[in-house]
């Protein structure tokens, strides 16, 4: 077999997949702004994505903040700059780790379940049944999930920011013997609104990516149980990769405007 042909085929397949995702995303956005809307379905998804993700996001944020304080202390202590620990913790959490950690956790928890649920509906013909009952599957299945994720991710990240900073504070004060009030003052002194806002914007974009990719892989799954399994895996892998890639692009964008 011609190896060049194989490379070409893989590349064309990749581009075709990218095109399908882009079309799906465009379709989703256009259905977001056209009635009918399903407020009760959006509310149920918000509960699932926002409220029930709190424990896992909170726990990971707590330990991330704790390890940040510990690691930056070991570094800064070597050139007597321990005072910067609080600033490093709060900036890393709000600008970077809050959105990324929450995004990755939600991709694993929510993206996977969306792909599995919609994928099962696809292979059992439930999506076709929706169409025969005069219901647009984009509007009924995809739009509520995407809107709920875009709305809830920033809130989750805000919670993750606070818990992460708290984790850093606990380690700094109780393990590294920092002064309570001066640590807190250093935390807020160098923090700018833009640091928090940029993190929340990232979160909203990640929420869109997670829900859209979860729905896309579920919607286009086929081939029974195996197909649904593959859709689930693909949704988590593609969302995780996209979160890290888009995170860099957004950081560059915010960095340039500052």
């Amino acid at each position: 077999m011609n190896p060049l042909a194989t490379i070409g085929r893989v590349f064309i397949g990749f581009l075709a997949g990218l095109g399908r995702i882009a079309l799906f995303a465009a379709n989703t956005v256009s259905h977001c702004v056209r009635p009918p809307f399903y407020p009760s379905l959006i509310a149920r998804q918000m509960m699932d994505i926002g409220f029930f993700s709190l424990p896992v996001v909170g726990l990971t944020a707590l330990f991330t903040g704790m390890v940040l304080a510990l690691q930056s202390y070991t570094g800064f202590a070597r050139f007597q700059a321990e005072g910067a620990v609080a600033t490093v913790v709060v900036l890393s959490m709000t600008r970077e780790l809050g959105p990324v950690i929450a995004g990755l956790m939600v991709a694993g928890r929510i993206g996977a379940s969306m792909a599995a649920e919609i994928g099962t509906m696809r292979v059992t013909e439930q999506i076709d049944a929706l169409v025969t009952l005069s219901t647009n599957p984009y509007k009924y299945l995809v739009v509520p999930r995407v809107l709920a994720a875009v709305a809830m991710l920033p809130i989750l990240v805000l919670v993750a920011d606070v818990i992460g900073v708290l984790g850093g504070y606990l380690v700094a004060v109780y393990k590294l013997n920092f002064n309570m009030s001066s640590y807190l003052r250093q935390t807020v002194d160098f923090l700018e609104w833009m640091d928090v806002i940029s993190g929340l914007v990232k979160a909203a974009v990640f929420g869109f990516l997670i829900a859209m990719l979860g729905c896309f892989h579920g919607y286009s799954s086929g081939g029974g149980a195996q197909g649904v399994g593959r859709a689930t895996t693909n949704s988590v892998v593609s969302a995780s990769i996209m979160i890290l890639v888009v995170d860099y692009m957004l950081t560059e964008l915010f960095f340039a405007t500052r």
């Binding site: 059992t124 439930q126 049944a129």
Partner: peptide, 10 residues
């Protein structure tokens, strides 16, 4: 209206 092979109930 359609009756699906596997019923396709939600």
């Amino acid at each position: 209206g359609m009756l699906f092979q596997g019923a396709a109930l939600f």
